[in-house]
Design a binder for these strands. Structure first.
Ligand SMILES: [Mn+2]
Ligand SMILES: [Mn+2]
Ligand SMILES: [Mn+2]
Ligand SMILES: [Mn+2]
Lengths: 218, 218
DNA sequence: AATTATTTTTAGCCTTGTCTAAATATTATT
DNA sequence: AATAATATTTAGACAAGGCTAAAAATAATT
């Protein structure tokens, strides 16, 4: 149905579309896929011919319903595989992304349904991202960046924005894992760093870190 | 390291080399991969450049040590994935091949090692074929085609030659599964059909079937 | 040994997906 | 409103992998 390359473009557009209400720009796609704008232009025509995106020259692109569903299914596979790797095969959350990038392209409806059942129908991947259902529906949780919490507010750590392995390993080192309760003890004005309580431990974390951690306020 | 296409060629040559002592011919490869001899000729040059095969124009090709190891590793992955699908995900033995054809190309040494451990280091795939170890070594079991057994001889059913889903489903229907004991009750001269005892059941099977079932004599 | 038949290779073309460089459209600034 | 800056598209080239048709080499027959 779709080539590996087409699938990667669809997924990129899908993610970019979540961040904006306007059409997704050629340059944004090029940047996300680390390719050239001219290559994106070429692919846009193909995807448009295949009715998965709406395309007006010099305006951005938007996914059609078919495109959305197709892309969501790839994301679904990616995240289910990530759960599988962590839960069943002893991968750590900073090792799974690369492999999932390959596994998400395996074409077998039965395979992914069975993986889903085998894992007990998980709702979130190891990075806290929601897993689309078979129809491509995503349940959006209300989450806030840790950096937006005020002094004395607290919540549960439920996700990361940046899921690069460097950042994830940093979190591991600091003992910050999903599900833990975090309370803001203090905020420094001049560098926006935070003093937080996580579990029993007191930690000082930079603004950069706080900008990449999602909290469900409580 | 190797493209998907190169990997498929290597695997084809690997399998063909097991059936002959001479070099593997261009036509044989083309037939196995359902492609044209001219395409094979082109790929042979690339694989030769990459030092995985020895190639002399108009003579066949042979795998180098590197080629053998690379190919065996792909076969290892294919067969481990087949075991995984059957043992953990409720696939039947006639459904796994297609999916394994895709999964065998996933590049992640950790992934396949973990799958191996997760499955308890299996030695054979669902069709009775041995799984190469990490170094690419295959232990060859001595097996005989059912058609070569004589009247009153018996053995354990340990593998299939043809693993097309049609044949496998036929075996399922007849209740013939790996591990069962088979005894030759009678052989018909004029059509080489057999009367066999499998478990408690008496069955009459054609020569075509008997030519595709492997038995370990006992 | 000469002639056929078969196998293998080469030549030339096509598609997919990529790139660089140039052209064109849009947006921002004066 | 005109000009400069930026974004996007087009043109042309290339590599991988495939195909058909023709040429060349090898094998089989007479
Ligand atoms: Mn990921
Ligand atoms: Mn993830
Ligand atoms: Mn198989
Ligand atoms: Mn098999």
């Amino acid at each position: 149905m779709f080539t590996l390359s087409e699938e990667n473009y669809l997924k990129a557009i899908y993610h970019l579309e979540l961040d904006t209400d306007k059409g997704v720009s050629t340059n944004a796609i090029a940047e996300k896929l680390e390719t050239k704008a001219s290559s994106v232009s070429d692919m846009i025509k193909k995807l448009s011919d295949k009715k998965v995106i709406i395309y007006k020259k010099y305006k951005g692109v938007t996914l059609t319903e078919l495109g959305k569903k197709t892309a969501a299914n790839i994301v679904r596979k990616h995240r289910l595989w990530e759960v599988f790797l962590v839960e069943k095969l002893n991968f750590s959350w900073d090792e799974v992304h690369e492999v999932a990038e390959q596994l998400e392209h395996i074409k077998s409806p039965k395979l992914i349904d069975q993986i889903d059942a085998f894992l007990g129908f998980p709702t979130h991947d190891p990075h806290g991202d929601p897993i689309p259902d078979k129809e491509g529906n995503l349940k959006t949780v209300d989450k806030s960046l840790l950096s937006t919490l005020l002094k004395n507010e607290s919540g549960i750590c439920i996700g990361v924005d940046d899921s690069s392995s460097e950042f994830l390993q940093f979190l591991d080192k600091k003992g910050i894992t999903l599900g833990k309760k975090i309370t803001i003890l203090d905020k420094e004005e001049f560098d926006n760093s935070l003093s937080i309580l996580i579990g029993e431990k007191k930690l000082s974390i930079s603004n950069k870190i706080a900008n990449n951690l999602y909290i469900k306020k409580s």
